[in-house]
Write a protein that binds this DNA or RNA. Structure first.
Length: 420
RNA sequence: GAGCCCAUAGCUCAGUUGGUUAGAGCGCCAGGUUGUGGCCCUGGAGGCCGUGGGUUCAAAUCCCAUUGGGCUCCCCA
C-alpha cells in the first residue's frame, strides 16, 4: 500500500461538536456536585513516572503487567496514566499537602489510558471523574465519598443502578481469609474453570470475581471475608452501612466484591448498571489506607471513587435522557455584496459584547443559500443587509420562527432582541 | 491473549441463482423565485463495493488472506 489513511489509533475516538456539547454538559453537572460537596479539583499530568503506577497500582495487576502505554525518553520512564488515584496520592505527597492540615478533599476529571481491546464502554483513551478524601479514617468519610458518587447519578435522573458494598478488612485479616479460601478451593480445583484454577495460587480472592458459569455454584459455599474481619474492621463496615441507610442511599452487601490491589483496605464498593453491556461497572472505589505509605509518604488514611464518563453517557443514552445541544445563534447576518459583508463582520463584535450569539455567511453565497443556512442553524433572527440598507442604515430584521420582518435601525434591532 | 459477527455514497441501508453503465432515502450543492429559510418540484456532485490475491468468459456477489469496526470472554471505570 502506497498511502496510509491517517485515522485515530485503535480505541481512541474524536469527539465531534455534537459530542462535546454533551461532554461539556455532563462535566458541568459533575463539577457542580463537586462544588456542593466542597471538593476542589486537582489536575495532575497525563504522564507519570512508570514506577509510580507500578508501585501504586501493583506489579501483578493486569493494568501494570500488560495494559500500560509506556515509553522511555533518555533515562526517564513515562507512562500514560491508567488511573487517577496513584497520581493524586503522589501529588499529595510531593506537595506536602498533609501539612495543610485537616482533610484534603480532591476531585479530578480527565483522560486515562489503558491498552486493552476496545469494546462497548471501554476505550483505550477513556475518561473518568473521581474524588479522593485523604487524611480521614472514620466511616463518615467513606459514606461521604459514596454519597458524592451517588449524587452525580441522582442529578442525571439515573435510578436503575445498584450499589454494592463490602469490606476487605486489613492486610492481616485478609491474609487469614486468603488462606481459608485457598483451603476451601484446593479440594474443588478440578471443578474450577481454568482461569480460576490459575488464580488459586496467585490470588484466590480473584476467584470470587469470576463470571465463569461453572465457578458460580462453587463460590456460593466459599468462606466469606466478613467472617474473617477483625473487630475494628467489622465495626467500621457496620458504621458505613449505618451511615448509608441514614443518608437514604440504597445498597446491597456483596461478600464477593473484592478489589485485587494490595493497598485496598476496609470498604470496597462498586456501582453497576444493567443498561451497560458486559462492562457493567459505572464506577467503583474504596478505602486505601496503605497506598500513600506504599509510594513513599507518611501514612495517611484515604478513601475515593472513580467513575467512567463514557459509561455514564451510555446509560444516559439508553435512558433517552435529553442532553442540551448546541446553542443556536441569536442573529444570522445575511448580506449581499462585499461592503455589506464587511459591515456585518464589523457589526457582530458589538452584539457579541452584549452577550448575543451571532454569525454570518463567509463565502458570498446567494441570499437564498444564506437564509437556508440561517434556518439550518436555527437562528432566532436574520438581519438582511445589501447596498440600499447600508446606505440608509435601515436593515431588514426577520424573526425566523414567526416569519415576520420589518425595517429598523441597528439600535432598535438590538434593543428588541435583548428584550426578549 | 481467545471466540463470534460485520464491511457498498457524508449517514442509514438495498443490490435476486455471479451477468451490461452499482441503486434508494436522508444529507450536501444549485435552479424553479436575477434580495428571503422550512414544504414541493427539477437537476448536480459524491463509490476502485475496506485492501490484496484467487476461481470464472464475467465478481459488490464465490474462496483465501489482510486491515478496520462491533460484540463476548478476560480485566477493569
Amino acid at each position: 500500500m502506497s498511502t496510509t489513511k491517517l485515522t485515530t489509533h485503535h480505541g481512541m475516538v474524536d469527539l465531534l461538536p455534537e459530542d462535546t456539547e454533551k461532554w461539556n454538559y455532563i462535566e458541568s453537572v459533575i463539577k457542580d456536585v463537586a462544588r456542593r460537596y466542597h471538593f476542589q479539583e486537582i489536575r495532575t499530568p497525563i504522564m507519570e513516572p512508570t514506577e509510580l503506577i507500578a508501585r501504586g497500582v501493583g506489579q501483578l495487576t493486569d493494568i501494570v503487567s500488560k495494559e500500560m502505554f509506556a515509553f522511555n525518553r533518555g533515562d526517564d520512564q513515562y507512562v500514560l496514566r491508567p488511573e487517577g488515584t496513584a497520581p493524586v496520592a503522589r501529588a499529595f505527597i510531593q506537595h506536602h499537602m498533609a501539612q495543610r492540615g485537616g482533610v484534603q478533599r480532591l476531585f479530578y476529571i480527565g483522560p486515562f489510558f489503558r491498552a486493552e481491546r476496545p469494546q462497548k464502554g471501554r476505550q483505550r483513551q477513556f475518561h473518568q471523574f473521581g474524588a479522593e478524601l485523604i487524611g480521614a479514617k472514620g466511616a463518615i468519610a467513606d459514606a461521604e465519598i459514596i454519597a458524592f458518587m451517588m449524587e452525580v447519578y441522582r442529578r442525571f435522573g439515573i435510578e436503575n443502578i445498584k450499589l454494592k458494598v463490602n469490606s476487605v478488612g486489613n492486610p492481616s485479616s485478609r491474609a487469614a481469609y486468603k488462606k481459608a479460601l485457598y483451603e476451601y478451593f484446593v479440594p474443588l480445583q478440578d471443578q474450577l474453570s481454568d482461569i480460576s484454577r490459575n488464580r488459586l495460587e496467585s490470588n484466590p480472592m480473584r476467584i470470587l470475581d469470576s463470571k465463569e458459569e461453572q465457578d458460580q455454584p462453587l463460590k456460593e459455599k466459599a468462606p466469606r471475608i466478613t467472617d474473617y474481619l477483625e473487630k475494628e474492621s467489622r465495626d467500621h463496615y457496620e458504621e458505613v452501612q449505618q451511615h448509608l441507610k441514614q443518608l437514604g442511599i440504597p445498597f446491597e452487601t456483596d461478600p464477593f466484591l473484592v478489589r485485587g490491589l494490595d493497598y485496598y483496605t476496609e470498604t470496597a464498593f462498586e456501582l453497576i448498571s444493567p443498561d451497560l453491556g458486559s462492562q457493567d461497572a459505572l464506577g467503583g472505589g474504596g478505602r486505601y489506607d496503605l497506598l500513600i505509605e506504599e509510594i513513599g509518604g507518611a501514612p495517611a488514611p484515604a478513601v475515593g471513587f472513580a467513575c467512567g464518563m463514557e459509561r455514564l453517557l451510555i446509560v444516559l443514552e439508553a435512558l433517552n435522557i435529553e442532553l442540551p445541544s448546541a446553542e443556536p445563534p441569536d442573529v444570522y447576518f445575511v448580506t449581499r455584496g462585499a461592503p455589506a459583508a464587511k459591515w456585518a463582520l464589523e457589526t457582530m463584535p458589538g452584539l457579541r459584547s452584549k452577550g448575543l450569539v451571532c454569525t454570518m455567511d463567509y463565502s458570498g453565497r446567494s441570499i437564498k443559500a444564506q437564509m437556508k443556512d440561517a434556518n439550518r442553524q436555527q437562528a432566532r433572527y436574520a438581519i438582511i443587509a445589501g447596498e440600499q440598507e447600508l446606505e440608509e442604515q435601515i436593515f431588514t430584521f426577520r424573526d425566523m420562527s414567526e416569519s415576520t420582518e420589518k425595517k429598523a435601525a441597528m439600535a432598535d434591532i438590538i434593543s428588541e432582541i435583548c428584550q426578549k
